[in-house]
């Protein structure tokens, strides 16, 4: 399925993501890493103050699409794979891998690289590589 290349919208949306990361660090002193913020909500051991920040950040994330609907009059365009087994496995691997590896696209890919972190740069190169390989196998080897 083809999608339209959107350089300007993607650059602008990316800048908003960056602005969000700077805003969270400036006000709350925390990295805008979605896997870290989200998984902290699931762990009983984490400190209460961190969980409050996580809760409100994730709430904001969940309210973005409804706000988009109210302002623009329609949901954002999307196409989501519908195979339930595939999506269950994908979710499990994404959740486990991101938390086990201390970060995902936002924590490592945006915030980590922006801080010049060698760990985050290596993590980003690693998950990009396995993601490219996975799509290649799925689409061009298995033909899914």
């Amino acid at each position: 399925m083809e999608t339209e290349f959107t350089p300007w919208l993607s650059l602008g949306g990316g800048a908003l993501i960056g602005a969000s990361a700077v805003l969270l660090m400036a006000t709350n002193g925390r990295i805008a890493g979605i896997s870290g913020l989200t998984s902290r909500l699931l762990a009983r051991s984490s400190d209460g103050e961190a969980r409050v920040v996580s809760f409100f950040f994730v709430l904001g994330l969940l309210l973005a699409a409804p706000l988009w609907l109210i302002v623009s009059g329609g949901w954002p365009q999307q196409w989501v794979p519908s195979n339930p087994l595939l999506m269950a496995l994908a979710g499990l691997l994404v959740g486990f891998g991101a938390t086990y590896g201390n970060g995902c696209t936002s924590g490592h890919g945006v915030c980590g690289i922006s801080r010049g972190s060698a760990r985050s740069t290596v993590a980003t190169v690693t998950f990009m590589a396995t993601a490219f390989m996975t799509v290649f196998v799925m689409r061009h080897v298995l033909g899914a």
Binding site: L62, G91, L92, T99, S106, T130
Partner: peptide, 26 residues
């Protein structure tokens, strides 16, 4: 641990096209 986690995360990302932020937003 960092590399194992990142590698596993990438496979899941390539299967579903979702990472945590977009999945929660969608």
């Amino acid at each position: 641990k960092l590399l194992t986690g990142a590698a596993i995360f990438g496979v899941g990302w390539g299967l579903g096209g979702f990472c945590p932020g977009p999945a929660l937003t969608a």
